[in-house]
Design a protein around this nucleic acid. Structure first.
Lengths: 253, 253
DNA sequence: GTGTATCGTATGGTCTGACCACAGCGAAGG
DNA sequence: CCTTCGCTGTGGTCAGACCATACGATACAC
């Protein structure tokens, strides 16, 4: 466990220290890659690997092809940046159920409203086909829930908003996970599944009717209804332990 | 201006596609770094940078010093990893400006409304402090926009919804990018920046007044106002790829 | 035949050096 | 004073090299 830190982790730790100590503040410029390299005693490759991580995490912004002295890199986030890492970690593990549901409500009602209001009403063939499949035969609980999640995803995709679609795709496994957990506490799965199917049809109908408010309400009722029915704890409660930058990459820990 | 993707992004996209296509499944071994390098036509350095990102995101586990044939890298997370991957995709590539703005509107108005309605009204100290900093002195355009994005992020964090906060954090670089592009077409940057500052104060005031509708409207005006002011192209609009029902991933199937 | 020791080899981790395109800055020239 | 041109330093990328390691196969001893 007390493994020698890898070279790029050294860079991460160094920058993390400077961030926490306040020596690096938002908007500051980082030393050049070569300077960091000699300063920390690691190769430029390692520096670049660390910078790439920071960039993807949104902590840093690279200025391509800048001038001599200044244009190096800009630190974006302050101490709050640490929370970005935590968020990332949370994403890998699991979100609070309430947060997932809330986000679904916000995004999916917006999607439904957009679809209902779209001037050339989008063809919801993918969604409708999926419902046909779901009604064609009896699915196991896990399969049904996967198809359910897929249905919601097809709506997001149909809306054409790639950002929302990507976000929901990213949440998909978390959604499936929570939906599956919740299904265990249901009084009658068959009742619930038939109700969900009917609500899916209602959603499509509301969208196709062009009534944005109705579409929004139907989606809201669908999602919050299931959430209310399943008595899930409000959250898995990820410990709020401050997470150090360099710790993120250690899967074995 | 058609940004050539950076080399490591090419690697990322390649692996992402194989993941989405199912050619790479959890537990599979990735080709060696040298193999990937020649296969994708990029240098090993770039491959390593991409792998480092995937490792930090928890999608991959590196096996240090493995044997000849197999021990390369292991894909760790299943669908759950998509969440991180999607965020990565959001950060690395860019989305349509209109989609980003729309998503911001949906998410941030919800955040503002939640904050305004929260029963023990959350302390928006981080947001307020940030505004103090922004008003304390004159910032360059890039710095100002970074701080602006940070401000919106602090609100999402204050709401306590980790999912929304994570999503917005993932969108951060895309947002900054589009905001920066838009700033070029502004008639007067100083006018705009002072207006943005005032609107930030308005948002905080609206939230603290407890008026959810007002908070929602203020945020909406803030975001859509800037978007309207900058005459950005609505963007590429990737054609909707038809999704076949058979593509649905059934667990166990 | 079985078990053990040894060695070759491919791998990831790292460093170095090199090249490129680009942006800033200053000097030279108008 | 303004324009132009080149120098310089930056990030982006690549190629090559070295190291330690762990796996696989071979050779050897029993």
């Amino acid at each position: 466990m007390t493994n020698e830190p890898r070279a790029w982790q050294v860079v991460l730790e160094s920058i993390e220290r400077e961030l926490l100590d306040g020596r690096l503040r938002p908007g500051d410029h980082l030393p050049g890659e070569r300077a960091l390299s000699t300063e920390l005693g690691v190769g430029r490759s390692s520096v670049r690997e660390a910078l790439r991580v920071l960039e993807v995490l949104g902590l840093i912004r690279t200025a391509t092809g800048s001038g001599p002295n200044a244009g190096a890199i800009i630190v974006a986030l302050p101490g709050g940046g640490m929370s970005a890492l935590m968020r990332l970690q949370v994403a890998a593990t699991g979100f609070a159920v309430a947060d997932i549901v809330k986000t679904r409500l916000v995004l999916e009602t917006a999607v439904a409203a957009d679809l209902a209001e779209a001037s050339p009403r989008p063809r919801l063939t993918a969604s409708a086909d999926l419902l046909d499949v779901m009604e064609s035969r009896t699915f196991g609980e896990a399969e049904f829930l996967a198809l359910d999640a897929q249905f919601h995803l097809t709506l997001a995709e149909a809306s054409g908003n790639q950002v929302i679609a990507a976000t929901m795709a990213g949440l998909r496994s978390s959604i499936e996970n929570y939906v599956r957990q919740g299904a265990a506490s249901l009084p009658s799965w068959t009742d619930t599944s038939t109700r969900l199917m009917r609500e899916h049809r209602d959603i499509l109908a509301a969208i196709e009717s062009g009534d944005a408010a109705s579409a929004r309400a139907t989606v809201h009722a669908h999602i919050s209804g299931y959430y209310a029915e399943t008595q899930l704890p409000t959250s898995p409660q990820v410990p709020e332990t401050p997470r150090r930058v360099a710790d993120v990459a250690l899967p074995g820990a």
